[in-house]
Write a protein that binds this DNA or RNA. Sequence first.
DNA 1: CTAGGAACTTCAAGTACTTGAAGTCAAAAG
DNA 2: CTTTTGACTTCAAGTACTTGAAGTTCCTAG
Lengths: 153, 153
Amino acid sequence: MSARTAQQSYTIKEAAALTGLPASTLRYYETIGVIAPISRGASSKHRVYDESDLDQLMWVACLAATGMSVSDMRQYVANGQLGPSAATEQVELLAQQERRLALEAKQLAVRQRYVRLKIDYWQAVDAGDTDRAELLSKEARELADELKRVKKP
Amino acid sequence: MSARTAQQSYTIKEAAALTGLPASTLRYYETIGVIAPISRGASSKHRVYDESDLDQLMWVACLAATGMSVSDMRQYVANGQLGPSAATEQVELLAQQERRLALEAKQLAVRQRYVRLKIDYWQAVDAGDTDRAELLSKEARELADELKRVKKP
DNA sequence: CTAGGAACTTCAAGTACTTGAAGTCAAAAG
DNA sequence: CTTTTGACTTCAAGTACTTGAAGTTCCTAG
């Protein structure tokens, strides 16, 4: 930690981009106490986020993404303040998040295929190609089964 | 459409499993008019879903998953009822969803890389490998810039 | 230095579900 | 046929954001 490390700071918009949470949610989390109050600019009321704020936020974003309730998150972050001794637990939860993201990616891919199929379908309908439309309709139904399968496990 | 096609029917739970939407949401969509009223059992008040209901629901589920508002969905499904005359409009909206999904996929990919990096980071910390931890921390920051860039365009 | 517009602020109201309570109905077990 | 278990029903209230209005503050250009 030399003088060279000039503590990066970020606006709320940048923090939002980095964490993937909308700025409105960042403010919301702060007002309800999920995250600690963010320091403000010397001559303004604007929030100024530093690296540790970002770390905390990214962490909260992970918990939120896994479906944890805000009251649980508040509790959990309060516990998490205790330091790096919880490294193992951190990794555990991050690994969980990784699996969740992998599942999300799968579901997204299926949805993308479905939308593409529906586009083709309507274009076939538009072109009066009934046979092709029916074929695509059937394909879409098969895809629906796949979507069903990817949801549960 | 022969007599063999004995119109499959489904309970709300099955419909929920097929569409990926919770049963509560299926009821909710019905009460606010996003989907048409579902017919009820002869001797009960229970909803009975048929194939076309499922088609409609699967469709709505896709729209919802891509972030369309309920009032837009209501409008959209109403158009869909009109038959193939609205085909062009359907394709237009679907293409929009497709672009949205592509963006979502990009953002998801970055988040996946970020989580992986954080896992590696905490494992390095856990192993006492300070150099590697610092390197990974720096990589994470570079990735953050990338995430920032993918948001805007 | 001073406009003007973008980005920030708070606060209140709206949206999209979600959950809980209290009751009805259905299918298998006895 | 009756009982029990569990899924279904409505309705009201709760949750987690989200959006809009009205007002600062920052920044870039003139």
